[in-house]
Design a protein around this nucleic acid. Sequence first.
DNA 1: CTTGACCCGAGGTACGTACCTCAACTATCG
DNA 2: CGATAGTTGAGGTACGTACCTCGGGTCAAG
Lengths: 341, 341
Amino acid sequence: MNKPTVHDIAREAGVSLATVDRVLNDRPGVRARTIDRVHDAVKRLGYVRDTYAANLARQRQYRFAFLLPEGPSQFTTTLKGAIREVYASQILDRVQLRMISVPSHDPHAVVRALHSLNADKLDGVAIMAPESPQVRDAVARIKSEGLVVVAVVSDLPNSPRDHFIGINNIAAGRTAGLLMGRMVRDSGEVLVVTNSMMSRDSIERRLGFDAVTGEEFPHLKVLPSVEAYDDPSRMREIVAEVVTSRPQVLGVYSMGFGNTPALSALRDSGRIRDLVVIAHELTPSTREGLLKNEISAVIAQNVGHLVRSAMRVLRALSDGQPIVLSQEKIRLDVILRENLP
Amino acid sequence: MNKPTVHDIAREAGVSLATVDRVLNDRPGVRARTIDRVHDAVKRLGYVRDTYAANLARQRQYRFAFLLPEGPSQFTTTLKGAIREVYASQILDRVQLRMISVPSHDPHAVVRALHSLNADKLDGVAIMAPESPQVRDAVARIKSEGLVVVAVVSDLPNSPRDHFIGINNIAAGRTAGLLMGRMVRDSGEVLVVTNSMMSRDSIERRLGFDAVTGEEFPHLKVLPSVEAYDDPSRMREIVAEVVTSRPQVLGVYSMGFGNTPALSALRDSGRIRDLVVIAHELTPSTREGLLKNEISAVIAQNVGHLVRSAMRVLRALSDGQPIVLSQEKIRLDVILRENLP
DNA sequence: CTTGACCCGAGGTACGTACCTCAACTATCG
DNA sequence: CGATAGTTGAGGTACGTACCTCGGGTCAAG
């Protein structure tokens, strides 16, 4: 009737508690036949380890770190806020957190930070950084030391990370393209702005955006991406120049990072209300833009979910437990003025 | 350094463990002054009860019930599936679940079901049912017996329920209105269909929809709501009639429940691809509609989140623990073909 | 047959909390 | 002053699991 315990397993398998314990915790000194007997009993009774009692007994502490880009980006600020909020609330059990900020555009700094992580003092790390060969090797190294590694926001697809928690950026771009095509009424041009087309996120978003607009919305002509190279004033200038000189521009797709200067340039041009503006990530800037009817839609990922999911996955992986994939999938949120959270 | 335990509290307050226990669990036999001393120590050390150890010690079982509408609605089927999935996965700790289906349009049946719930055998209940005076009284009664009551999907605003888990339906209607206004290119009419305008959800959605279209989109003329009174064939007939006889209809807003027959009528009319169709809830029907470009957007609530949130809230309330509101807020999802989960 | 390596059981303590008993103390009242 | 009720402490067991020790068992090689 009740949930079976190790005692029930021992009785069912006809062995002692110590043996059950040895089997369940992969300790040596048990014959293969006996191991099977225990596993059979586990299966027959449907035993599942009570993780909380186990953690209590072994005084388990989960020690995780978040490796995040430093700098004044509104998105990372929002993300860090979400991490702090989750950490402060009591939903985390036995978790100790460290936040590490690095200039993420510098692969060597990322590598140094990764190498400074000690497997003796840490169980897992969540990384948000662009992938580079150096980073890939560093991930491999800390994984071989026994750390659990998950990528957040930006995937590290060629690195041996255990899991990726974030959105599908091609789908994000496709969603933006679909919205743009449905919302721009007349034929015209669409401006795409980003900080850098070197980032795989931007590349994927652009790919998705182009695919949908190309296939389904021939009335739109999508211009080549405008890059600002992390320079806000450059972003402001380029956007201002394009929007004022090309009246045929009817839509702007801001692929994230650099929303604020792009928006301010659009605002100054006086044309922002006539444009369909689609941006990424919900930040103070984009929220304000939505409320002022300057931005039509924001494609976002829920940073609260992102952080909680990262924690759950880190825990599950450090315990060797399965992940409930349906719960961990980060949805692509489409946010309009009326469904602002 | 480590998390303080009851032992630390006892030492800090200069009392015994038994006294700390009496205070923390509101047991009698402690002088007011001593109670304060213990509470002071708790505050000074920042003690928080280890819920898992406590549940272990007291052999806690959470016994919850879900009271849901019976019948073949795709949304409730989806919801029930989500409940089963959450229940089957191991994320629930010490929770026993019962699902009760009632013909929810019959207040007396709902009341009978509520009265059959025994506070001795149950800790809490999540209810999805329309509010009526009878239901309100029944909720008050089972609450007075000590049960925790939360409303899910549809609020019971005049009942003494402890919490509501679901979306803001006025905002949902406003979001639909905004999407409709942005996506319908020319001047024309918008058809609004629902099963019944008696339901407060429908009323609120319509309210929000009208507010936004009225204020911001004068090119749209929103027709009076068409009601099908839970009769699929009636729904099919009315929709077919309106759409074929009124070529000036450019958009259709299906407020939920009855999506399937409405869609099939639109499909048969041959006009569906030229219309902007906005529907509620992600079900097999609406998913198919999105994929076929028949539906432009779906306003949905994530049923997985809904169910997990209901469980967390029920647990927290039965333990008298605080709720992390930011985690429990159910977002209004805007789902397009490209961001289908 | 002995030796030693391997296997297994019995029984213990611990984690943080709940809940129990019983003895002893304190304050108050008549 | 003693009786009485109200407070408090000491110490225990239990929850389900981890981890430890130690004694005794089996079995194959020498």
